[in-house]
Write a protein that binds this DNA or RNA. Structure first.
Lengths: 72, 72
DNA sequence: CTGTAAAGTGCATTATATGGCATTATTTTA
DNA sequence: TAAAATAATGCCATATAATGCACTTTACAG
């Protein structure tokens, strides 16, 4: 999953929960500015920042072997 | 998956491939110092750094809904 | 053991993520 | 369509990730 996909997934998850960026920022402890920057596809969050956001959204990072059939 | 788990998985993957940190650093474009720091459990890599490393290891980040049954 | 390769660490510098504040743009709602 | 809520962006200070270099420690082959 590329950066763009991660952003999209997280943003969609937040919207599905009907929660504002401000709320997520408060609950996660991540700065509102940082969250906005991330959701608008800018920036390069640290793993910790990403995990804080995911945590509040009831999600987590996982690793998988790249799917060779869907290369490129 | 928590930070510790990510580190462990990545390190084990690298070792399973019989590749040195130096090689991964060169192939990924991530500084050797950064990789060392990461594998020794220190630091807080950016998503980009993480993805560069995973890429070389044939892996990728994915997101999943947290498993409630395995809480704590 | 001994030498060598691989991994870990201290220090300094540079690049950049974080985050607050004010302002603007966009979306939603009444 | 006006007002209110949400989201995006510029400016900017601070914290810290990224990285190179030199050196130490650990692992391993001979």
């Amino acid at each position: 999953m590329h950066f763009t996909g991660l952003v999209k997934t997280i943003k969609e998850r937040r919207e599905a929960l009907h929660v504002t960026q401000e709320t997520i920022a408060e609950l996660s402890g991540v700065g509102l500015r940082t969250l906005k920057q991330f959701e608008s596809g800018k920036g390069n969050p640290t793993l910790l920042t990403l995990q804080k956001l995911l945590d509040v959204l009831g999600m987590e990072v996982c690793l998988k072997i790249k799917d060779l059939t869907s290369n490129q």
